[in-house]
Design a protein around this nucleic acid. Structure first.
Length: 496
RNA sequence: CGGGGUGUGGCUCAGCCUGGUUAGAGCACGUGGUUUGGGACCACGAGGUCGGCGGUUCGAAUCCGCCCACCCCGACCA
């Protein structure tokens, strides 16, 4: 994208648009390390806001934060067979602890004598290292439930990466809980999925489908996986968060046992759940437009930006003093406001910049406004521009921000509904998937064979078996067998 | 890991085919001035081991060899 011009539009090239929005919004950039990104201050501020809200939600549901090591002894990974198989092919491995100069003295190489006794895996997820530690914390049913969360970075050596959506290293939170009964573990798994759905809809303004993953899509090592799925503006699905009921699989692998009230020794029941910096990608692809980022007020680093305008230097001090009559009251109301007092920059340039950065509400204050005790307001979501009296603006600003938040959610929900189709034949499924795309609600027999066939022929996958689908008996659109095992429509879509 | 492509100031690229003083342009950046209600203009200025190593040559960004990195398209995935 050339500076001083517009972005590639979504219809021209969606992937290119996505990259340009990130660049123009100053969120992140590629690092010299393959598949890794540098999250810039503005992008990190967005992540911090997400993190703070989620962290509060986790604590309100009884969880405590802890921190476990980045390195996992290789042997830990082989204690849960499915888990091992699921992650082994994308691990970074530490083999040495020291560098020495090469024989020609021009480079460095691992010192053969520093080869580790046991190689260390850089965590792709922390179940194994956490169970290794907490099995010693739990002896009695009185020690349960154990409700932990960790904010951390993890590494998965992915083949193809995209900023935020799939990077070799990413930031996330991973909840890990241990329970005395299967019922409690199931309740926890469902509860945390609900927390994610709440966060996504009410804070990120991203409507989500809640549901269960098919056997082939579930987390490696889980009994079953629940997920929240969102639709991006190119009508592809994004798995925004997952919550896994791990049953006793990991407890057995790590000998995580507790003594019951009756004095018997039993394996515990565990869960894990996570969301990552991928959510930033989801936020971008849900709300942003051809002018750049559009951020929901509840998560935006700056909810309001004030651009002062002066014609002559002599006016500058007066205008800035007047701008403060907006900025100070906004701060008092707890609104995140930024005054852009940069000199030697034309107002128009600032307008474009904050538009690209997705600030929900822009205020322009110049001599005319100062004279009228007014302010010019511009909404990022609709582009609506309106002059207002200062006091009236201040009285209504929170309501305006709430309305922007609600508008974004409603718009995203309407888009998803428009692009969700009830599909009753495989031909129709292919037609949609190969055409505009979207979510296809269809009957499915529950077999891997049908799932694999669709995936290899169309690239679409089963995103989830939604909770809120009504019961519906009928024949699988692929093989024609009865769907009695599933008993309702499931959702197919291409996904990120 | 297969197929394709690209490596030259912060960014986008020209120069390479046909080797020849001091490697260019636009954007961005700095200073000064005029500007400022939707991306300003003028002047001056700073910034480069031309991805790395080796070879050919009097001389290499340019030719040859090897290596590395990144990007795009596939198979795999939060």
């Amino acid at each position: 994208m050339a500076k001083g011009q517009g972005l590639t539009t979504r219809t021209e090239d969606y992937a290119k648009w996505y990259g340009e929005v990130i660049e123009a919004g100053d969120l992140a950039e590629h690092s010299p390390v393959r598949g890794c990104m540098v999250i810039k201050p503005y992008g990190y501020a967005l992540w911090e806001n997400m993190r703070d809200v989620l962290d509060r939600m986790f604590k309100d549901t009884g969880h405590s934060n802890a921190y476990f090591p980045l390195f996992i002894p290789k042997s830990y990974l082989s204690k849960e067979a499915e888990h091992d198989e699921g992650f082994a092919k994308e691990c970074a491995i530490v083999t040495h602890s020291r560098l020495i100069p090469t024989p020609d003295g021009k480079d460095l190489m691992p010192d053969p004598s520093s080869k580790l006794e046991e190689e260390l895996i850089i965590r792709p997820t922390s179940e194994t290292i956490i169970y290794g530690a907490i099995k010693n914390w739990i002896q009695s049913y009185r020690d349960l439930p154990l409700l932990l969360n960790q904010w951390a970075n993890v590494v998965r050596w992915e083949m193809r990466t995209r900023l935020f959506l799939r990077t070799a290293e990413f930031l996330w939170q991973e909840g890990h809980t241990v329970h005395a009964t299967a019922e409690e573990a199931e309740e926890e798994t469902a509860k945390m999925l609900g927390v994610y759905a709440d966060f996504l809809e009410n804070w990120a303004a991203i409507p989500v489908l809640q549901g269960r993953k098919s056997e082939s899509e579930k987390f490696a090592g889980a009994d079953h996986t629940y997920c929240v799925e969102a639709m991006m503006q190119d009508r592809r699905a994004l798995q925004a968060g997952t919550s896994h009921n791990l049953g006793q699989n990991f407890a057995k692998g790590f000998d995580l046992t507790y003594q019951t009230q009756e004095g018997k020794l039993e394996h515990a029941w565990t869960t894990s759940w996570g969301v990552s910096t991928r959510l930033i990608g989801g936020l971008i692809m849900t709300h942003s437009d051809d002018k750049g980022l559009v951020l929901p007020p509840k998560l935006a680093p700056h909810q309001v930006v004030v651009v002062p305008i002066w014609r002559k230097d002599a006016q500058k001090d007066d205008i800035l003093a007047y701008a403060d009559k907006l900025v100070a009251p906004l701060r008092e109301k707890g609104i995140r406001v930024h005054l852009d007092a940069r000199d030697k920059m034309q107002p128009g340039k600032k307008f474009y910049e904050w538009e690209k950065k997705g600030v929900p509400l822009r205020l322009e204050v110049g001599p005319r406004d100062m004279e009228n005790d007014g302010v010019m307001t511009v909404r990022r979501d609709t582009g609506d521009k309106a002059p207002m009296a200062r006091e009236a603006f201040l009285d209504g600003v929170q309501a305006t921000l709430d309305e922007i938040q609600a508008t974004l959610l409603a718009k995203a929900r309407a888009f998803r509904e428009e692009n969700t189709h009830a599909v009753d034949s495989y031909d129709r499924l292919k037609e949609i998937v190969e055409g505009d795309g979207g979510f296809c609600r269809a009957l499915w027999c529950g077999s891997d064979a049908c799932e694999n066939q669709v995936q290899s022929e169309t690239k679409a996958t089963i995103r989830c078996i939604p909770f809120d689908e009504p019961e519906e008996k009928g024949d699988c659109i692929i093989c024609g067998e009865s769907n009695e095992k599933i008993g309702k429509r499931i959702v197919w879509s291409k996904a990120y």
